[in-house]
């Protein structure tokens, strides 16, 4: 259900890059977009952290330890 709201603000963004800064509201609009972008960067950072945590949690030695057996090689 999520992830489908309307997304169309990209081209205004491109337009804003060339728009005069004297147009009222443009600095505020740009600030909103920057806030969204910074938030997304933070989201990506946390996502990468979670994926790294998953790799660490599911590494063979951790899984073997969870199952209560030695990590291979020996009997």
């Amino acid at each position: 259900m999520y992830g489908r709201p309307a997304l169309g603000t990209m081209l205004p963004l491109a337009g804003m890059a060339t728009a005069s800064r004297t147009v009222p509201g443009i600095p505020f609009a740009r600030g909103l977009q920057i806030a969204a972008g910074m938030g997304f960067l933070l989201y990506c950072l946390i996502a990468f952290g979670l994926i790294a945590a998953r790799l660490w949690l599911r590494r063979p030695s951790a899984r073997a330890a969870a199952a209560g057996r030695p990590t291979g090689g020996g009997s």
Binding site: L7, P12, M16, A29, Q33
Partner: peptide, 17 residues
């Protein structure tokens, strides 16, 4: 929540222009 800032930005930019 992050995406919600973008349409708001669009409306502000259009209104200003």
């Amino acid at each position: 929540l992050l995406t919600s800032l973008l349409p708001l930005s669009f409306l502000v930019a259009v209104a200003g222009t």
